[in-house]
């Protein structure tokens, strides 16, 4: 039983180091000698960094914040799997008991042209923000709103919209996709509003604007492999991508200009 485990493990790590977007980058090797199975993956990385600092070396930079699986900051590709081997899990919620004593673990950053490396495992995901800025909103200003219960939303629609809105914007879908496609992220965002009455007025325009921005950012196309959804810590469904495609094509056909 965990929680009471006192034995520790030795984990051999190969971690990506890269000074900046133009640097070639390379792996450093480090053995974490006393890894507790109860540590989270990021806590193991903390210990590695303390070791590195104490031995006069540069620590590894990585993004992290809430460490409870909701902020979407952490982003490590662990032995080829974004967020590690577990389903529906972010890197911060992955625990070392998932590994065995003596394992070799390779840690890489999200890799995509649209996510350039800033340093080590830290990548620039601002492309997601720009996609959202292109149209990921309902054009309502503070003070304009009618009473919250003025528009009933069928429970099934509200629940489905919630499932799409659960996306935490971590970018694992891009990291997992063989084409570095952002389709799952963008479609989840488009679907969240497309499924609600509040989002109808701008529905097609929104889909058009966000997809156009997605293409401009240099993400690949969707091959419908489903790796994104299998990797997604919030298990966002591929249905969203179909919905996005529908809305985008409809928008293309209906646009007057």
């Amino acid at each position: 039983m965990g929680g009471t485990s006192t034995e520790t493990m030795k984990i051999k790590l190969k971690i990506w180091k890269q000074d900046g977007p133009s640097d070639q980058g390379h792996f450093i090797e480090h053995t974490a000698e006393t890894v507790s199975p109860d540590m989270s993956f990021l806590e193991m990385m903390d210990v590695v960094n303390e070791d590195l600092v104490n031995s006069g070396k540069e620590p590894v930079e990585f993004d992290h914040d809430c460490r409870e699986g909701i902020c979407g900051s952490c982003n490590m590709v662990i032995n080829g799997n974004p967020h590690g081997p577990d389903k529906a899990t972010t890197t911060c919620q992955l625990h070392m008991r998932r590994f065995k004593d003596g394992d070799t673990v390779v840690v890489e950053p999200w890799r995509a042209k649209a996510f350039p490396v800033i340093k080590d495992l830290v990548v620039d995901r601002s492309a997601f923000d720009r996609i959202m800025q292109a149209g990921g909103y309902v054009s309502v200003s503070t003070g304009n709103a009618p009473d919250a219960n003025a528009i009933p939303v069928p429970k099934v629609d509200a629940d489905e919209a919630f499932m799409s809105a659960a996306c935490i914007g971590c970018g694992a879908c891009v990291a997992a996709c063989k084409n570095a496609s952002a389709s799952l992220f963008v479609s989840a965002k488009i679907s969240h509003l497309a499924l609600l009455p509040q989002g109808q007025a701008e529905r097609l325009e929104r889909a058009h604007a966000m997809v156009t921005q997605m293409d401009e950012e240099g993400f690949g196309a969707c091959t419908n492999t489903g790796a994104c959804s299998a990797t997604c810590p919030k298990e966002i469904s591929l249905e969203n991508i179909a919905r996005m495609n529908r809305d985008f094509l409809k928008a293309g056909l209906q646009r007057r200009k």
Partner: peptide, 21 residues
């Protein structure tokens, strides 16, 4: 007013079967 504003933005609050919050 906060609830009104958030709903107008598309915040998917939990709803009852009648579609109300």
């Amino acid at each position: 007013h906060i609830i009104d504003t958030c709903v107008a933005q598309g915040v998917p609050f939990a709803r009852d079967y009648g579609g109300l919050l």
